[in-house]
Design a protein around this nucleic acid. Structure first.
Lengths: 240, 240
DNA sequence: GGGATGCTTTGATCTAAATCAAACAGCGAT
DNA sequence: ATCGCTGTTTGATTTAGATCAAAGCATCCC
């Protein structure tokens, strides 16, 4: 293999990432092996328990991370305590707000999770040096923007029942395929968190879930484990 | 001035843009004068009447645009006709979804507007050749993402009165300073559009506006023209 | 086992906002 | 002027979802 081919191969193929191991995030895939080695020297793999905050709303953060495993929720809270989940992120998403130090939202592990943490300064430098990385992060931002706008439609115009069905469908669609069938999954969110994602109350969430159960659209194995016999039927409940 | 200084100057300073004239958008500011000339050869300045669609939801679009003047609303509609405005854009914002041909939302002029239209293929090429442009568009995407998430909080957790106050405050904040005082502005949206932005009905919008009027927070000169005597008071109505 | 404790479900009631219905105001066309 | 036509306000009524309240059910600890 000549040099040109070799370099092309190294920059365009995910290279084993010591910190991230087999999983490759938005960041790792866009770096050359040299950059990856440098990033790895300064990055840290961390296990995060469900409920732990990764970034606090209003705080200055000096690091970014990649999700290796688990689900992270992005949350905004008002002074009086009302709160709204504004995004759910799954492996291998990137967590952080490029170009702005102060976070306007909090990021918190919804489930036990593993993240790969690296310093902000270093990645910012790499972004400015690596168009492919910029592009990769740009892509993720646009993907999140599409998701946020889709959710705005849900928040503004769907009924309680449609909202719950939309959430279940979203999670079923994004769940890690740990279970053999794609029709069973663990809910990464409590009823209270679901309420905060859907802009409603715990009680209404619960009532709508039992309504879906009684209609046979879902089976509730236990609070956190859901079986969906027919995904198309669930999808059809997301709008009239 | 030597060559190096001259080039630096040309790439880092907005260059007069024939099509866009004095106003410079996200795109123009990031291009070299050579690229700008090429873009100008293929771009078109267009006047758009209020209500005209720029991009249709679900359609493939072969162009992007910059807003020169006016307000553009981004809208999603469901099969049964329910609809939600998911973004408002003001001059000199960029309109279009880089990297994806099919639009998941429609863009429509909310007021009479002028836009600068240029071919998708050409700009896509320039994006890949110009890290500064990529960065500029990345910035705009992140800004829109922040705005979308802020609005999710409004949609999910604010009351009708708070929603209306939030919208008025948003518009007052982004309005072009055509009027001498920053406390008077034209509403770019009809009551129906406001309702679609806030996820509620026309009647509720109207009632909440008269409530604000009766409390003296706003004066309604006519349907479209609003005066805000005390901006801080308006802001305080956006949350309890 | 028997409490505590922390979710979750279920029930009864209330209310903010939707819906239904009418009147009103601006405006261009005849 | 008068007649539509469209967008807005106001009023009466209904309802989806919130709130208030209690009971069910796991899990952990003694």
């Amino acid at each position: 293999m000549d040099v040109a081919r070799s370099e092309l191969f190294e920059t365009s193929t995910p290279v084993a990432c010591a910190s991230c191991q087999a999983r490759h995030g938005v960041v790792c895939g866009a770096l050359s092996s040299g950059q990856l080695r440098e990033l790895n020297r300064h990055s840290l793999r961390r296990k995060i328990e469900a409920g732990c905050e990764i970034i606090a709303q209003g705080a200055e953060s000096s690091f970014y991370s990649n999700i290796m495993r688990g689900v992270v929720k992005l949350c905004k809270v008002m002074q009086d305590g009302r709160q709204q989940i504004v995004g759910l992120q799954f492996a291998p998403d990137f967590v952080g707000r490029p170009f702005v130090r102060e976070s306007t939202l909090s990021a918190e592990a919804a489930t036990d999770a593993e993240i790969c943490v690296f310093p902000r300064n270093l990645l910012d430098r790499m972004i400015s040096e690596t168009p492919e990385l910029q592009r990769s992060l740009h892509d993720q931002a646009l993907k999140e923007l599409d998701a946020a706008r889709e959710w705005m439609l849900t928040l503004g115009r769907r009924t309680a029942g449609e909202k719950v069905a939309s959430l279940l469908y979203l999670i079923a669609t994004h769940a890690e395929p740990q279970t053999a069938t794609s029709t069973a999954f663990d809910l990464p969110l409590s009823r209270a968190e679901i309420a905060d994602f859907l802009g409603m109350t715990i009680e209404t969430v619960s009532r709508q879930m039992t309504k879906l159960r009684k209609r046979g659209v879902i089976h509730i194995e236990n609070f956190r484990h859901i079986v969906v016999p027919d995904m198309d039927e669930l999808q059809s409940m997301t709008s009239a």
